[in-house]
């Protein structure tokens, strides 16, 4: 029993349903993320990926059970939750006059609250977060002058500064060039190796299959498939979720599934 508790997943969602506007956006979805793994949330546009991510981050869900290390999420106090879960939304906003360093330092808020002064540790964590996500080079520039990729890294650094065990990232690789994407997933892999759990929404099935330990394929709010990338990204599942215009191939050497538009495959 104690052994079971010791490996309790960082987050465990059971039969979660989110209703909005009179219909189920998310229907009966169950997912768990353990320490050390990267779980990819994939699915076509409108499948409910972002909504589900928000529910996991503590937004209201209609029914189901979400637990952090075995404790119901609603029973976890706000700031404690923010020390445990860090979220990067798809298009996060911040004033264009804010510097990267100021933004990243806000990641320390769950640790500081209103009154505690920033300690050396807080400053170190801010610097470390910027270094790891590669924004120390432009730490003192204002957000308004950054490129799309730099901006994204700044927000990831803000999440890292939270020192959270669980990272929920909504399409962190969107608008990143191939190299930046690779660097990002290397960073996520390193964080997972240190014991973090990561749930990441990925648009591109090929890079999801290549970078994640497990995938959850959402379709119209339901889980269509979940498991190892090769079990999830199959011709059958892809046909069901994305329709007939997409084809699945196997990488000749690694065996990783490759997903490309069908027209290109003809």
């Amino acid at each position: 029993m104690t052994a079971a508790l010791a490996v309790a997943p960082l987050i465990e969602a059971r039969a979660v349903t989110v209703r909005a506007g009179g219909r189920d956006i998310i229907h009966d979805v169950s997912v768990e993320v353990h320490a050390g793994e990267i779980v990819g949330l994939v699915g076509p546009n409108g499948a409910g990926k972002s909504t589900f991510l928000r529910a996991l981050a503590g937004a209201r869900h209609t029914s189901g059970d979400i637990r952090l290390r075995g404790t119901p999420i609603d029973a976890v106090e706000r700031r404690e939750r923010a020390r445990f879960i860090a979220v990067v939304e798809q298009l996060p906003e911040a004033p264009s006059t804010m510097t990267v360093r100021e933004l990243v330092a806000l990641g320390r808020f769950p640790h500081l609250g209103l009154l505690r002064r920033q300690s050396a540790h807080d400053r170190n964590m801010t610097d470390e977060a910027m270094r790891r996500s590669g924004c120390d080079a432009f730490a003192d520039r204002v957000l308004g002058t950054l490129s799309g990729g730099e901006r994204r890294r700044a927000f990831i650094a803000r999440a890292l500064a939270q020192e959270a065990r669980l990272l929920l990232l909504d399409e962190p690789s969107a608008n990143l060039d191939a190299e930046a994407q690779a660097t990002l997933f290397e960073l996520l892999r390193a964080l997972a190796a240190e014991g973090a759990g990561i749930l990441v929404v990925v648009h591109d099935l090929t890079s999801a299959a290549a970078s994640c330990d497990r995938l959850v394929l959402l379709h119209q709010g339901y889980v269509l498939a979940c498991g190892a990338p090769r079990e999830v990204v199959t011709a059958e599942h892809v046909l069901a979720a994305y329709g007939p215009h997409v084809s699945v191939f196997e990488h000749p050497t690694s065996g990783i599934p490759l997903v490309i538009p069908a027209a290109a495959a003809r």
């Binding site: 981050a57 979220v87 806000l106 609250g113 209103l114």
Partner: peptide
């Protein structure tokens, strides 16, 4: 006293909630 909360609020409200505000 609330000045740090106002700094967090300079982000959008969703992020502010996620930061525990």
């Amino acid at each position: 006293i609330t000045s740090r909360a106002l700094d967090v609020l300079q982000l959008d409200e969703e992020q502010a909630e996620h930061l525990g505000l």
